[in-house]
Design a protein around this nucleic acid. Structure first.
Lengths: 113, 113
DNA sequence: CGAAAAGGCAACCTTTTGGTTGCGTGCTGG
DNA sequence: CCAGCACGCAACCAAAAGGTTGCCTTTTCG
């Protein structure tokens, strides 16, 4: 089971992933990539209110968090999701909410004597 | 199935939650609250490197995201997790990674002719 | 070939964020 | 009852984040 060191590891690895997801525009990009597959910067940009350069920055943030990766193809660059870190984030949330559920259960037991 | 409007709603509701989790200190606070139950600000502070006021700010951020809520008890204030938004975040990740898995599957099918 | 499409790079600006220090207030326990 | 603990409020600060504009390079295609 996940205990001790691995929780600490989850924390350091998890924070950048959550931070990357903590922006509406980036969350929307992730959603579009997840439903429409690999997209070029230009295609991601139209549909958004901000500049292409802003989108590029967001993609770089997502990339640094390991959530996404882009590959040059001719004159354009296609970006696609990398699913692994998403799973990590989900696992972290599972871990926390499981522990919280147990804590609640203990508390309930205590209160009910 | 989750489609259209509900995805958009997930995005607007999800971003603040992820943003709140996107900080190592706050993630650590959430972890401690999930394993140790309700804690006072003072108790949260020792074990962390920063000031009590910094911790207070972090708690307010977590509170604004609906992740946590504090209740005054005598001269101290106890903070505890509110599990619901965590579930929302987890559901969002489930949604995205499920869609991504399907997209990958479609792509694979296409490539393998 | 040459215009237009796609994008990289860099400078710059404003707002937010994470943190601090200083001081005031309320509760409590010996 | 009063010393001290736990906390709130406010001002302030440096760095990071989100965004823009301007310009240059590479690639495509009629």
């Amino acid at each position: 089971m996940l205990q001790g060191r691995s929780v600490a590891a989850s924390l350091r690895k998890g924070a950048p992933v959550f931070a990357a997801l903590g922006d509406e525009t980036r969350l929307r990009i992730v959603a579009r990539l997840s439903s429409d597959g690999p997209l070029s910067i230009a295609r991601i940009t139209d549909g958004e209110a901000v500049t292409r350069q802003a989108i590029t920055k967001h993609l770089n943030v997502l990339s640094s968090a390991g959530l996404v990766h882009g590959v040059r193809r001719g004159r354009e660059r296609l970006w696609e999701l990398k699913p692994a870190p998403l799973d990590d984030a989900r696992r972290y949330l599972d871990l926390v909410s499981a522990r919280w559920d147990r804590a609640l259960a203990r508390l309930k037991l205590l209160v009910e004597d």
